[in-house]
Design a protein around this nucleic acid. Structure first.
Lengths: 198, 198
DNA sequence: TGATGTACTTGACACTGTGTCAAGTTGACG
DNA sequence: CGTCAACTTGACACAGTGTCAAGTACATCA
């Protein structure tokens, strides 16, 4: 895998992204990806052991292309309290459209494929960590609402910003990105913040 | 389909429910269901044209077994305003555990199978209608929060009570039914109700 | 120049699960 | 006894994944 041609590997990842972004995710077969990357189907298996790992690698690739880590570091971890929460939601919701196709495919394999299951779960752990850092920062500043344990607050935020919810609102219900962002931010505030009755 | 033996049909539906409730949903094959219902795999196709329709029929069967329609009629449509909203959430969340397995299977087929897609979408329309009736009742009583169009309010409620969210909180995050119900009811109030600053 | 190795191709094949088809079997009812 | 409905048995087509073996094209190096 690491010994194979890098340019080809990137072409595969790019092809996967392209096809996923477009359409009927489950109809993106290994052979489709190969065709789009202009290699043989079998060559895919020289770079990735199976479909699940290819999809996971694609999310990593997309993270890199979008420079998500750096932006998170600067804008989320660089802020605190409400500002951190808002920055997190904004950056994450800006990223979802890019990964949404691959995410859908990966989630569809859940249960049918243990590898895919674990892989996606693992990816989501990173997002969960960010939720946690937001909650902790709010708590440190005394802004966290009563009535939740810390874990519950993290769970709630994690649910609020989940990909399935995004898919439902933006793709099925036709909400614009902007509307959904605004509404979710407001909801997050209403749910997680202490009333400022001062 | 309607000309075949009814007892067998029910055994199939019961078997499907049993297997789905238990476990790894995607690993429930047509042959597994047949085995569990003590008929041949081929006999399944005398009763249901394909897997998708079998799953949908199973949700209908579960609705019937649970007498969901009557309870909705009495407790949801029989109430109004906040009481209707609360009754809806309570009944629906009480029902999700029963249909959750089949729902998961159906959602997993989304995209790979147009029939399953349409079928599940169609099932969810009924839930959406209930959301709508709650929102309309709140609006009639002047309790609906400002800042949403009616459609947006329905969308928000629909998202809040979605099966994926239930799955995430109750199955992945380990929330108890009761906690999740209480929290969701509170969230629904916070999001949909006008502040009662009187 | 010729040897070696890497990246890729071609074509075949095993395997799993869905759905179809054709030819039985069984039991009830007239 | 005949007939019909419900079901069984066994075979098969089809799609998609993943594997395997043999071959090609090209670069690099002795």
């Amino acid at each position: 895998m690491s010994s194979t041609n890098l340019a080809t590997r990137d072409r595969i990842l790019k092809a996967t992204q392209d096809l996923m972004e477009q359409g009927r995710v489950a109809e993106v077969r290994m052979s489709d990806i190969a065709k789009h990357a202009k290699i043989s189907r079998q060559a895919l298996y020289l770079h990735f052991p199976n479909r699940a790992e290819l999809l996971v690698a694609t999310t990593r690739y997309l993270d890199d292309v979008q420079g998500i880590d750096a932006r998170v570091e600067a804008q989320v971890m660089g802020a605190s309290g409400i500002a951190r929460l808002d920055a997190f939601i904004e950056i994450w919701f800006g990223h979802i459209p890019h990964i949404q196709g691959v995410a859908k495919a990966l989630m569809q394999m859940q249960g049918s494929d243990k590898e895919a299951d674990a892989a996606w779960q693992n990816r989501m752990t990173a997002v969960r960590r960010l939720c946690k850092s937001c909650v902790e920062s709010l708590r440190e500043e005394g802004r966290l609402a009563d009535g939740y344990t810390s874990k519950q607050a993290v769970d709630v935020l994690f649910m609020l910003v989940s990909v399935p919810n995004w898919l439902l609102m933006v793709q099925s219900c036709g909400w614009s990105q902007k509307t959904y962002l605004t509404q979710t931010r407001a909801t997050a505030h209403r749910m997680l913040l202490k009333d400022e009755a001062l």
